[in-house]
């Protein structure tokens, strides 16, 4: 029971991480396409500035909870995905530093360098997270001892790459919607147009991904066994269409929330299909890391649950307050800070 609760929380943490960091990863990846001049760029940096760091902590927490609640899974998952994770980490480092360093020297080459880091540090994580999770859905080739029997390129199979493209598109739509909310004038127009243009591509990739999931993974087994689970894929689909409807009505906040729900629905679609596995082995299902063979002791799970039940609502409350405090469109006055 405790293991199952932690499994759900594990999925929830990843979902929250994708929902939040998704928009700033997507927006960073789109910056070259959206920004026409220095002011546009500064608006984009400012649209993410107060939020990205707090969002990224959800990744740290998702990783930390994997470690704490399912240490054996953490060990197998992170060592199997070694090179992909290292790439992800370096990308996130460059990106985080770009935010703080870009505006600190008034020189176009310096700024250009950090703009490139922001782009790479946004696009690559979006892609790699998608590739990693698609591979997890499909199963990773590790043996009975949890030793990985592949290379970085094993992960770059068609289904993995499709997952990567799906994540990139999901995040890009999410990010353009965020910019549509946070900016004004031409830049906002461009962001809105971008969201509308990307949406059909997202629908197509999502449909192909679902079909490929049927062929390449065993996620459907759970769905065939339990009708109730269908709420997740249905939620994802409904939210995806709601996103488009809200866009058509010019309701950008609503569109952004709907897009967040789409991301949550997609995450839970995968996670619910995995249960009771966390990371299946593609060599032999008997080797898979499951909630029962990889969980921490009941005492650890209980203490962690106590901490989570008290602290996570507190975290959500003050993060929500911070979002509320900085909810306004980016203004001239904001840009007067020399920082960005």
């Amino acid at each position: 029971m405790l293991e199952t609760i932690w499994f759900v929380l594990w999925g929830l943490l990843w979902a929250v991480y994708f929902m939040l960091d998704g928009f700033d990863l997507g927006l960073g990846a789109l910056m070259p396409a959206l920004a026409k001049n220095e002011t546009d760029k500064r608006v984009i940096y400012h649209a993410m500035g107060p939020f990205w760091d707090g969002n990224e902590v959800w990744l740290l927490t998702a990783g930390g909870v994997t470690f704490a609640a399912f240490p054996a899974t953490y060990a197998v998952m992170f060592s199997s995905l070694y090179s992909a994770l290292m790439l992800l980490l370096f990308a996130l480092i460059l990106r985080g530093v770009a935010f703080e360093f870009r505006g600190k020297v008034d020189n176009p080459a310096w700024r250009g360098l950090w703009d490139a880091c922001l782009w790479l540090g946004s696009f690559l994580p979006a892609l790699l997270l998608g590739v990693a999770f698609a591979n997890i859905f499909m199963g990773i080739p590790f043996d009975a001892q949890g030793v990985y029997q592949g290379t970085l390129f094993t992960l770059l199979n068609p289904y993995g790459l499709l997952g990567g493209v799906l994540f990139v598109l999901l995040f890009m739509v999410h990010g353009s919607l965020w910019l549509a909310i946070k900016s004004d004038g031409e830049l906002a127009d461009r962001a809105q147009a971008m969201a509308k243009r990307l949406w059909p591509a997202l629908v197509i990739v999502a449909v192909v991904f679902l079909a490929a999931t049927w062929v390449s993974t065993r996620l459907w087994a759970n769905y065939l066994g339990n009708i109730a689970l269908w709420v997740f894929p249905l939620l994802a689909v409904a939210a995806l269409f709601a996103t488009r409807l809200a866009m058509a009505r010019g309701a950008w906040w609503k569109a952004w929330f709907a897009s967040a729900l789409t991301i949550a629905g997609c995450t839970f679609f995968g996670v619910a299909g995995l249960y009771p596995n966390l990371v299946p082995s593609s060599l032999d299902p008997a080797f898979s890391m499951t909630i029962s063979n990889s969980a921490s002791s009941p005492l650890t799970l209980k203490i962690m649950l106590g901490v989570a039940l008290v602290m996570v609502p507190v975290v959500i409350a003050y993060q929500a307050w911070a979002y509320y405090t900085f909810r306004h469109k980016v203004t001239e006055e904001d840009l007067a800070y020399e920082d960005y």
């Binding site: 740290l60 930390g64 470690f67 704490a68 901490v307 989570a308 602290m311």
Partner: peptide
Amino acid sequence: FGSLLAIEATL
């Protein structure tokens, strides 16, 4: 060890 790190993150 993992739980100490996870608590550090949340707290």
